[in-house]
């Protein structure tokens, strides 16, 4: 049994979550309380010492992140809830932090709770939150991305990523310090996350950080030379978009 509280300023969201927890997670989660403001939540967390908080991102004009920064409870685990805050969702995906989209569906809730119970690795969780806060404060280039490698999650600054190379269901990351990381996700997922941060897919199997492009050589598609001296063919159909992006800067 995990002890949990809900923090949300909209009563109908609290009610929905209470109902869903009672019907679908009755044997796994014991709900201690629910709070509608950051101040109230801070007190209740200190008093009740829950292990899990369902935390809304938007709270009376402030954010749930503020609450998390204020309290010092290293063993506390969080599942964020949000309706359509794209910036927050991107931040969660970058940091591999758990989140639920509202309206919350029963199967998604059960999945999240099960995942949380099966991986109670506190150290990793702490790293995830640290990366999340870092990303929320950092500018475009300074963001950190969580990469699931064989040894576990690795957090990498995206401006240290020179390029990614697809190999089947895996993606190989080439970092500026010369390290390579094999990550068990398809490149498509990283393309979605990184293309807003000056990355561009020049080829079916190459995603490139444009900050590291040293030179472009014309040709049918041409090829690029990167700072680590790798040379990558630009596919013919990507050439025009690539040149446009390079010319337009970021």
């Amino acid at each position: 049994m995990i002890n949990a509280i809900i923090v949300d300023d909209e009563a109908h969201c609290v009610e929905r979550l209470q109902m869903l927890l009672a019907t679908h997670c009755g044997e796994k989660v014991r709900l201690l309380d629910s709070c509608s403001s950051i101040v109230q939540a801070e007190q209740r967390i200190l008093q009740l010492a829950p292990e899990l908080v369902f935390l809304d991102v938007q709270l009376e004009g402030r954010t749930g992140f503020e609450l998390l920064q204020k309290i010092n409870a290293p063993s506390l685990r969080v599942i964020f809830t949000t309706a359509y805050e794209q910036y927050a969702v991107t931040a969660f995906r970058f940091s591999a932090v758990d989140y639920l989209l509202k309206p919350v569906g029963p199967s998604e809730l059960v999945n999240s709770v099960d995942k949380l119970i099966s991986s109670l690795d506190q150290q990793e969780a702490a790293l995830k939150y640290e990366a999340l806060f870092h990303n929320l404060q950092a500018g475009a280039g300074g963001k950190k991305i969580a990469l699931p490698t064989q040894e576990g999650l690795e957090f990498v600054n995206i401006n240290e990523v020179v390029r990614c190379q697809a190999s089947g269901n895996y993606t190989q990351f080439f970092l500026s310090d010369g390290r390579h990381l094999m990550v068990s996700r398809t490149m498509k997922e990283f393309e979605e996350l990184l293309e807003k941060h000056n990355f561009f897919r020049v080829h079916y199997s190459h995603l490139v950080n444009l900050d590291y492009v040293k030179k472009y050589n014309r040709g049918k598609g041409g090829y690029v030379l990167l700072a680590d001296n790798s040379e990558l063919e630009v596919s013919v159909r990507r050439k025009e978009a690539f040149l446009k992006k390079m010319a337009g800067g970021r």
């Binding site: 040709g219 049918k220 041409g222 040379e231």
Partner: peptide
């Protein structure tokens, strides 16, 4: 068959 790179 990477002609652009070859030529470069």
């Amino acid at each position: 068959g990477e002609d652009s790179l070859a030529r470069g």
